[in-house]
Amino acid sequence: MIKVDDLHKHFGGFRAVDGASLEIAEGTITGLIGPNGAGKTTLFNVIAGVLPPTSGRVTMAGEDITGLPPHVLFGKGLLRTFQIAHEFTSMTVRENLMMVPGDQAGERIWNTWFGRRRIAEQERALQAKADEVLEFLTIDHLRDEKAGNLSGGQKKLLELGRTMMVDARIVFLDEVGAGVNRTLLNMLGDAIVQLNRERGYTFVVIEHDMDFIERLCDPVICMAEGKVLAEGTLAEIKANEQVIEAYLGTGLKNKGMVEA
């Protein structure tokens, strides 16, 4: 579905992504792990069009999408969420969701004055859809709350909800679980699995919580220092010497707390 080919992103002398190549298969929930500063979020940013790559290629279903602006990629069904949840603070939760689908009738100045009925119909449909999404995420009671007032976990749910407002093909989730309590995290996991099975979303998930990764992701890709270190099932990754060295840590082994 997504193929990344020898991608580089340098900030001055710092090589955040340094020749990463990987492939995301359609219909999978792929985990992306690695130590802090491994270039995971930068990779997301480049794929999603937020940052232009220094060099390299990104293709989506065979089509070159390198360097396309975010709103165009969005139109192609490529969505992402943020590590730190973003929301339109001064709008209600429902309005936040209703912002999402592009090319609405009300966007045309002409329609603003002469196409009132079409806009109203579309708004009603969007409203119903937003309510459905909120119910699915069990935050329908917060519908008319200003999004800025939500808790961190609720904002994460809203981020996921945003991807459900359109027919996404592939969704990049940047640490959906960070700062979210266990119960909410399980719920997020359930939602992701359900979206993957029922609506055929492909997910790429950055996450540090290994239990979460274990429950959801197959395959798992491990990055370090801007490169892809290893790829495979979580069990394979966990057994990989390089990965243990770079990420999972040898600390416990050295102290003799686990058997080597």
Partner: peptide
Amino acid sequence: DNEDLALLSGINP
């Protein structure tokens, strides 16, 4: 309110 989010919500800048 939030340029990044607006772009990633498909709003044409």
